[in-house]
Simulated assay, not measured.
Amino acid sequence: MRIAPLLAFIGAATVSLSAFADSSIPPAVAAGSLASVQVRAAHTYLSKDDAEHMRGTFALTDGRTITVTNKQNRLFVDLDGKREELVPVGVTQFVTRDTGARIAFDQVPYAAEVVVNQAAR
Rank of each mutant, 00 (worst) to 15 (best):
Q72H: 10
T65D: 11
D106Q: 05
A31W: 01
A21H: 04
R40N: 13
S16Y: 10
L6I: 12
D62Y: 11
I66E: 13
M1Q: 06
G90C: 08
R2Q: 09
A42K: 13
F76M: 09
V91R: 11
R40V: 15
S24G: 04
A120F: 14
Q38A: 06
R83C: 05
L60S: 06
F105M: 12
V68W: 09
G100F: 01
G32E: 09
E52P: 02
A12M: 14
V37G: 05
R64D: 14
A119G: 12
A59L: 14
N73Y: 10
D49K: 02
R2N: 12
V114K: 15
P109D: 07
L60P: 09
A13L: 04
L34S: 04
T44A: 03
V39M: 00
P26T: 06
F76E: 05
Y110S: 02
H53N: 14
Q118F: 14
M54N: 06
E113F: 14
V15G: 07
N73E: 13
V91F: 11
V77Y: 00
E85Y: 10
S18V: 04
F105T: 08
V29P: 02
A101D: 07
K82V: 14
N70K: 04
D49E: 08
L17Q: 05
L60N: 07
A59P: 13
F9P: 05
S16W: 09
D49C: 03
D80K: 14
S23A: 05
V77D: 00
T61M: 09
S18M: 09
E113Y: 13
L60F: 13
S47F: 05
V89M: 11
A41N: 02
E84R: 06
V68L: 10
A111V: 02
V15A: 13
Q72R: 11
G81E: 11
K48I: 01
Q107G: 04
V114P: 15
G63L: 13
S16K: 07
T92D: 11
M1F: 00
T92K: 09
K82C: 04
G81P: 10
V115M: 13
T69S: 12
A19T: 05
D106I: 00
R64T: 08
F105L: 10
L60E: 11
A41P: 02
L75F: 06
L46P: 03
S36W: 01
A104L: 08
S33F: 04
T61Q: 15
K71A: 04
G56D: 11
G63D: 15
P88N: 12
I3H: 03
L86H: 08
A104N: 14
T65I: 05
Q38V: 08
F94M: 01
V116S: 15
S18Q: 07
T65A: 12
L86V: 09
A101H: 09
V89P: 00
S36G: 04
A119N: 15
F58A: 06
P5A: 12
K71C: 03
A8F: 12
L46C: 03
A30G: 13
V29C: 01
P5C: 14
T44W: 06
V116Y: 14
T67F: 05
V39N: 05
S36R: 02
V87G: 03
A21V: 00
Q72L: 04
